[in-house]
Design a protein around this nucleic acid. Structure first.
Lengths: 194, 194
DNA sequence: ATATACATACCGACTGGTCGGTATGTATTT
DNA sequence: AAATACATACCGACCAGTCGGTATGTATAT
């Protein structure tokens, strides 16, 4: 039976951590900062999380699950339509995440150096790739896509998604990213369609 | 009349900085570390570079110029061929850069938070986009590509490139990236071709 | 040629401050 | 009363940048 106050505190710390990490970055966001932002003492922080890294991983985990859930619920009549429709997730992702987007750069950066973070980042990522590959297999089966290596094709789509995302984060004003994403996907589907 | 020893020292420091930044990241790589790796005193470091950030920017600058130079020298008979050929830059980039790849993640991460780094990162990046857009305009003119918005198409290609690069950095063993890059570009060109 | 004067390159101890984490105490809940 | 939740005070490590001083080169004057 978890106590209510405790859960609130924990949630406050997580929220504060997201904000601080997004603004200052992982290293520059000190535990003291996060505590101050959460209106909580250091003791509370270390009561809920064993290390600073732990809270980082907790955030990463939570977000990947969100994305995963979003991807399931948008099947369209045909596979190409499903992929194009997928791009409409983008603005909602941007809207919800907004200024916390730089966190994902942070995730990736740390993933390249930290085994634990790497595992937590890459595993679900490969999972997305499988998800895409399966969709493509369906598309070939239903006759809307031409014969092609599903794994490679999935890789292409994932690369495009990652690239769009990264650019959107770094240079949000230089294009209408929703539009670019939709067009990109259409070009890709054009290249893959029968 | 610059002294020779001085230039060697400066180069040593730059080399050491690349290595340390790549392995440990910008924040974790201390100036002392870099000096130790370069076999040089802290005094020497601050004789050559005013701040830690300055050396970071110097590295960024140097690398962007390298990429720029590489992109110019690979025109092929037709524009689609040029783009596909371009993917062959990838293994050479990977080979040369090797373990210093995480540095670019570092660049991007810091770009999202640091005005100076942002400017230094984004400006050449937009320049690449223009370069691609011009190529596409040529392709439309020569009749190998269908009528399409060159800016958007360039954006798509850039996104794909960025996405491939990022994945290659994070998960180098999970695919043959040279192959994936080439196939990706072919699918794209397929979607854009007349 | 060689001594003097100056400039550049470099050294390493030191400083003021920050940070992650801990130890120990108090309040709140059960 | 016992466990859980939180607060405060503190520790040792570390870090970017400074500074007084030295070594090595170069230009000029004799």
């Amino acid at each position: 039976m978890p106590q209510q106050r405790s859960e609130e505190t924990r949630a406050n710390i997580l929220d504060a951590a997201v904000r601080r990490f997004a603004i200052a970055g992982y290293d520059a966001a000190s535990v003291d900062d996060i505590c101050a932002e959460a209106g909580v003492s250091k003791g509370a922080f270390y009561h809920h999380f064993p290390t600073k890294q732990a809270i980082f991983l907790a955030l990463l985990d939570g977000w990947l699950k969100t994305v995963d859930a979003g991807l399931e619920a948008l099947r369209q009549p045909t596979v190409p339509e499903t992929f194009v429709h997928m791009t409409q997730l983008l603005p909602s992702i941007f809207a919800v995440a907004d200024d916390r987007l730089p966190m994902f750069l942070e995730f990736w950066t740390r993933a390249s150096r930290d085994e634990k973070v790497w595992a937590a980042t890459i595993a679900p990522y490969r999972h997305y790739r499988e998800h895409f590959a399966n969709l493509i297999r369906d598309g070939i089966a239903e006759g809307s896509l031409k014969e092609a290596d599903p794994e490679s094709a999935a890789q292409v789509i994932l690369s495009l998604a990652v690239g769009l995302f990264l650019q959107g984060v770094l240079d949000p004003t230089s294009a209408d990213w929703q539009k670019v994403a939709e067009q990109s996907m259409q070009v890709l589907m054009n290249g893959l369609a029968k």
